[in-house]
């Protein structure tokens, strides 16, 4: 049975009628028109759907609406803008990371939380933090360069 859910996404409040079991991803993409989180696997295995829920990287493809509650949801669009970019977004552009680009929500949202909580991380720590993410094009070398660059920018 559908029921109304109040969602706070990127600082804005919304009400969505949805099945409590429906993953948050579909509400973000279809009801709110936020295309940035992508469907990659629906199994929490790749990261393409990652958003922050109260600051924590969360796989929205397996997060039921009923579990979101009053939490603040942040998508990649809420991470930064061209005028006020997150250091990772700046670094991604400067390092020209993307190939197909479909995976970026996972890497950027996961790395953003990691760099917020871990100042001056080692390369091994960065790799470990990002080990649960997929990139099929094989841009990992550029991803690592960009995350290291952003880490330096974030001091």
């Amino acid at each position: 049975m559908n029921q109304p859910f109040k969602l706070s996404v990127n600082g804005q409040s919304h009400t969505v009628e949805a099945d409590p079991d429906m993953p948050l991803l579909y509400a973000l993409r279809n009801d709110l028109g936020l295309n940035n989180p992508h469907f990659g696997c629906g199994l929490a295995q790749c990261g393409a759907c990652t958003v922050h829920v109260d600051g924590q990287p969360t796989r929205s493809c397996v997060t039921p609406m009923s579990a979101v509650g009053k939490s603040e949801v942040t998508t990649l669009a809420g991470l930064g803008t061209p005028e006020k970019p997150h250091p990772l977004q700046t670094a991604y552009v400067e390092e020209q990371v993307l190939q197909c680009g479909y995976c970026i929500n996972g890497w950027l949202m996961t790395a953003a939380a990691f760099l917020r909580d871990n100042k001056k991380p080692t390369e091994a720590q960065i790799k470990e933090a990002l080990s649960g993410l997929k990139c099929r094009c094989g841009t990992h070398i550029s991803i690592l360069k960009a995350v290291k660059r952003a880490a330096e920018m974030m001091g």
Binding site: T81, P82, V93, L98, G101
Partner: peptide
């Protein structure tokens, strides 16, 4: 450099899925 990196990183460009 590619000019299409920034639009994707800032969620301004649609994929076919969108």
């Amino acid at each position: 450099k590619r000019e299409d990196i920034a639009p994707k990183v800032f969620c301004q460009e649609d994929f076919v899925t969108d």
